[in-house]
Amino acid sequence: MESRIFRYSCDCGSLAIGSPDCVTLVGNSVGDGTYSLFVTDREDFKAIEEDFVFVTTCRGKAVTVYDYDCEGAEPLCTLSGRFAVYRRKESGDMAVVMWEDWTGRDE
């Protein structure tokens, strides 16, 4: 999995994760603004893990991470599998870490 850094914005102090029908807002504990989002696997995450605090896990097929937590959000990436969400200490940065990649798995 390619490790990417995106930018996300929030007016509800959170990262929006879900699908067109259902979205969960994962709080960044800092508040509104524009921050970095690290999308990676466990291996690459080790290098930066020390800065982050675990928040929650999520699993599903075609789970979308959005660039904004209010109306008008655009997808940043879509993940299939089991992954964890972390927040960076004293920062609004978030990380989505793939634990189990289901991409290509049969229905």
Binding site: E2, S3, R4, I5, F6, F38, T40, D44, A47
Partner: peptide
């Protein structure tokens, strides 16, 4: 070079993915 990449805006309507 870390192996991470990020998208950088390079113009009004242009961007490119660069290493971090």
């Amino acid at each position: 070079e870390t192996g991470w990449t990020t998208e950088v805006r390079t113009g009004f309507d242009a961007s490119e993915v660069r290493p971090v």
